[in-house]
C-alpha cells in the first residue's frame, strides 16, 4: 500500500530477526531461547499447542513485553527496549487474539484511528478544520474507504463496533491494522471463532494483502489447513521452545511436531 522507499529492504531479505529470545513471567518460562527470522514479503506462520508462547512472541515483537534475553533486529536496527507506539512508528501493526477495537467508535472511526501516525496537522488546524486540515482528513478518508471496499464492509462503516458480530469486528480490526500501511503485520488468530465462510473471506483478505500490497505477515493460526494454504514458512513452538522451522509440508511430516500435537485436539 505504500510506495517503496529506497531505504526499504528488498523482498526476500530478512525484515525481522530474533536471536536467542527468552521471556518469563515469574516462574513461567513462556519463551525459551527462540531464534527465527521473517523475510520481507513472506507469510510466516507461528503455530503450536495452547500455551506454547505464540501470543507472547508477538507481544515481544511489538514491544508489549520486554524479553529478559535476546536480540531483536527490525529493518536492520537492533533494539534493546521499545514501547508499542515505537513499534507502530517503525511500521509494525497487529491484531489481537481477542478483538481489541475501540468499542465506542464507529467502524469508520476505528479504521481512521489507524491513520493517526500518518496525519500531521496540529491542534490549531484541527480546531478550525478548514484548508489543510480538512484536506488531510479527506485524503485519509479516501485511503480508508479503499480499505473498507477491500474488506467489503461498506454497509457497516457508520455502525458502532460494539454492535457488530464477532466476525465483522475481526475484519474491522484488520482494517485498522491495514490503515497503518505497515511493513510487518502481526495477526493473532485472525480466524478464531469464525465459521467456514468467514474463514474463507479472511484467508482471501490475508492473501490479497500479502500479494497485492507486498505486506509481510506473521500469522498465528490453529487451523492447519489455513496454515498450509497461506504460509511460506512455519515456526512451531511448544512450551516456549522452538521445535521446528520449515516449509508447511516439511512441518507437517516432522515427528517432533506430530508428537507435540498428539493428544491436543484442534
Amino acid at each position: 500500500m505504500r510506495a517503496p522507499a529506497a531505504s526499504d529492504i528488498a523482498a526476500g531479505e530478512v525484515l525481522l530477526s530474533l536471536e536467542n529470545v527468552s521471556l518469563s513471567f515469574g516462574g513461567v518460562r513462556a519463551i525459551r531461547d527462540v531464534s527465527f527470522d521473517i523475510k520481507k514479503g513472506e507469510v510466516r506462520a507461528i503455530i503450536g499447542p495452547n500455551g506454547a508462547g505464540k501470543t507472547s512472541m508477538l507481544n515481544v515483537i511489538n514491544g508489549f513485553y520486554q524479553p529478559q534475553q535476546g536480540r531483536i533486529t527490525f529493518k536492520g536496527r537492533t533494539r534493546s527496549t521499545m514501547r508499542p507506539y515505537d513499534a507502530a512508528r517503525g511500521g509494525i501493526a497487529r491484531t489481537f487474539q481477542n478483538v481489541a477495537l475501540f468499542k465506542g467508535m464507529s467502524a469508520l472511526d476505528n479504521i481512521m484511528a489507524g491513520r493517526t501516525l500518518r496525519m500531521r496537522r496540529g491542534l490549531l488546524w484541527q480546531l478550525l478544520r478548514v484548508g489543510p486540515a480538512l484536506k488531510e482528513e479527506i485524503e485519509h478518508r479516501e485511503r480508508v474507504e479503499e480499505i473498507i471496499d477491500f474488506l467489503e464492509i461498506q454497509a457497516i462503516r457508520k455502525v458502532l463496533v460494539a454492535r457488530l458480530p464477532y466476525g465483522l469486528q475481526k475484519r474491522v480490526e484488520l482494517g485498522r491494522a491495514l490503515a497503518m500501511e505497515p511493513d510487518l503485520l502481526l495477526l493473532d488468530e485472525p480466524m478464531a471463532g469464525m465459521n467456514l465462510e468467514e474463514k474463507e473471506d479472511m484467508s482471501r483478505f490475508i492473501v490479497d494483502v500479502n500479494e497485492h500490497y507486498g505486506t509481510t505477515i506473521a500469522l498465528i493460526e490453529h487451523d492447519m489447513g489455513v496454515v498450509m494454504d497461506l504460509s511460506d514458512r512455519v515456526v512451531v513452538l511448544d512450551h516456549g521452545v522452538k521445535i521446528a522451522d520449515a516449509t508447511p509440508d516439511e512441518v507437517k511430516r516432522d515427528q517432533n511436531v506430530i508428537d507435540a500435537y498428539l493428544g491436543v485436539a484442534h
Binding site: P84, A113, T116
Partner: peptide, 11 residues
C-alpha cells in the same frame, strides 16, 4: 475505549 490498542496504533 482501549488504551493498549491505542498504543499499538501509535498513540
Amino acid at each position: 475505549d482501549m488504551d493498549i490498542a491505542a498504543e499499538i496504533i501509535g498513540i
